[in-house]
């Protein structure tokens, strides 16, 4: 395991802890999208089907259990905890997640490495993770005012994606058979960055890009954060409360 992968896992873990902290201690989930959290629970349950059959390392197994446990407990808190569910912004969190799940499922059935149940589900989880943040980004745009913890949650998630990309680039050079699409993807990224699209155009483009490969989806997900990062860093630099422009 390389340093980028470890740092990526740690920022991913921090993002989950930040969210749990907010929900558990402040008993509030204001600004948090239940749709995104449900999608993550689905992502982890379809990806970690091998948790009891293929052993990689103790680290892997423990982390998988943490991500499964935390995602389901966040969903449970937001749905069933009396105090927490009261702060849930139901009226703004209206993204239809079936529009993300179905295309990802069809795509996984069409484009995969091996046509086995576990492999197709793994591929589905990779595609779905790339777009699972969309309901959260839409909710952030609609509510405008974002509290610190929600902002930090999305920031750490974005950091995790960026570090995973560095990890893939590293593995590409150190493990010859690792990634095939990476040069194509990074070229796409440069072109897209040059055009400076906003979140919703990113979505259309990401659907197109997803058809190219599983590796691509990791990049797309990071691109979705680019817009958010811009405002996050600006608000931090100017020391003002984080708001998003429409």
């Amino acid at each position: 395991m390389n340093v980028f992968r470890l740092a990526g896992d740690m920022t991913h873990l921090i993002s989950v802890l930040v969210l749990l902290l907010k929900i558990h201690t402040i008993k509030s989930c204001a600004g948090v999208s239940l749709k995104t959290q449900e999608l993550y629970a689905l992502v982890f349950s379809t990806r970690y089907l091998d948790i009891f059959t293929d052993f990689t390392s103790l680290y892997n197994t423990v982390m998988k259990l943490i991500f499964l446990g935390s995602s389901f407990s966040i969903v449970w808190y937001m749905r069933h905890h009396k105090l927490v569910q009261r702060s849930y912004d139901k009226d703004h969190d209206t993204f239809r997640h079936q529009f993300l799940v179905l295309p990802c499922l069809i795509l996984a059935l069409l484009i995969h490495e091996q046509f086995t149940f576990k492999e197709v589900m793994w591929t589905f989880s990779i595609y779905l993770e790339a777009v699972a943040i969309l309901p959260q980004l839409v909710l952030l745009q609609r509510t405008r005012n974002i509290d610190n913890l929600t902002g930090q949650y999305v920031f750490f998630l974005g950091a995790y994606r960026s570090l995973y990309i560095l990890n893939w680039i590293y593995r590409y050079f150190t493990e010859p058979h690792y990634v095939h699409w990476i040069s194509t993807t990074s070229m796409f990224c440069v072109v897209l960055f040059c055009f400076g699209f906003t979140i919703f155009k990113w979505y259309l483009i990401s659907v197109l890009l997803l058809t190219l490969s599983a590796w691509m989806s990791g990049f797309v997900q990071t691109l979705l954060y680019a817009d958010f990062f811009y405002y996050y860093i600006n608000s931090w630099k100017n020391n003002v409360k984080l708001t998003l422009q429409a």
Partner: peptide
């Protein structure tokens, strides 16, 4: 299936 690239990641 765990031999596929990327399956050792989270």
């Amino acid at each position: 299936s765990s031999k596929q690239p990327g399956h050792d990641e989270l």
